Amino acid sequence: MTGRLRFDGWILGAGTTSGTRVVVGHWPRSPLGPLSDVMVQRPDEHRVLLAPSAAAAEFIAATYAFDEVRVLDVGVHRPDERTWTVSAGPLRLTVRTGRRPPLGWLLRAVPAPLARTPAWVGLLDRPARLVTGLRTTGSAGNGRTEWYGVQDLHAVTAADGSWDGEPLGGLAPVRPPVSFGFGSVPPRPSVVRVTTTVRVPSDDQGP
Rank of each mutant, 00 (worst) to 15 (best):
A56R: 08
P189Y: 01
V191H: 09
A55E: 13
Y148W: 15
P173M: 01
A62Y: 02
R144I: 03
T197C: 11
G133Q: 04
D44M: 01
A65S: 12
P177L: 04
S18Q: 03
V23E: 11
A128I: 03
T20K: 09
V38C: 02
F180K: 09
H26T: 10
A51P: 09
A54T: 11
R29Y: 11
I60L: 11
P34M: 06
D164H: 11
L107M: 15
P186R: 03
S36Y: 05
V121Y: 08
T20P: 11
P34W: 01
E45V: 13
R175S: 14
G161L: 15
D164W: 07
G149Q: 00
P34C: 04
G13S: 05
L130H: 00
G15W: 04
A159G: 13
L5I: 09
T157C: 00
P201Y: 03
S36A: 15
A62S: 13
T195H: 14
R99A: 14
S139N: 12
A61P: 15
G33Q: 14
P177S: 14
G181S: 14
W120H: 14
L106S: 14
L171P: 08
G169A: 03
V185E: 05
A140G: 14
W10A: 13
T145K: 02
L72G: 05
R4S: 09
V95N: 01
S179F: 10
T17Y: 10
T83P: 08
G98A: 07
L93A: 07
F66H: 13
G165K: 09
S53L: 09
A88D: 01
T132N: 08
F59I: 06
H77G: 10
S190Y: 02
V22Y: 01
R96A: 05
G98M: 05
L35R: 09
E68Y: 05
S139L: 15
R193G: 12
A57R: 01
G75R: 15
R6D: 12
E45M: 13
T197V: 12
G143Y: 07
T83Q: 02
V174N: 00
D152T: 06
R99S: 13
T145H: 06
R135N: 15
L12E: 07
V178C: 15
D80P: 04
A57T: 02
T16W: 01
E81K: 07
F180M: 08
V131H: 00
W27R: 11
D125G: 08
L103C: 12
A158F: 09
V200W: 01
A88R: 00
F7V: 08
F66P: 14
V38L: 07
D160I: 06
P31V: 01
P201I: 00
V185M: 06
A128S: 11
R116Q: 03
W84H: 12
V110M: 14
G169F: 05
E166V: 14
P111T: 11
V40Q: 05
T157S: 10
R188I: 06
G143F: 03
P90A: 02
P186Q: 03
D204S: 14
Q41Y: 02
P102Y: 00
V22N: 00
G122E: 11
W27A: 10
P186K: 03
A155C: 12
A51I: 04
P101K: 05
A55L: 11
G161Y: 12
V24C: 13
G149K: 00
R4I: 08
A159I: 07
F180E: 08
T17R: 12
A57M: 01
D125H: 06
L107I: 10
T16A: 06
L134K: 07
R78H: 15
R108L: 07
L5R: 07
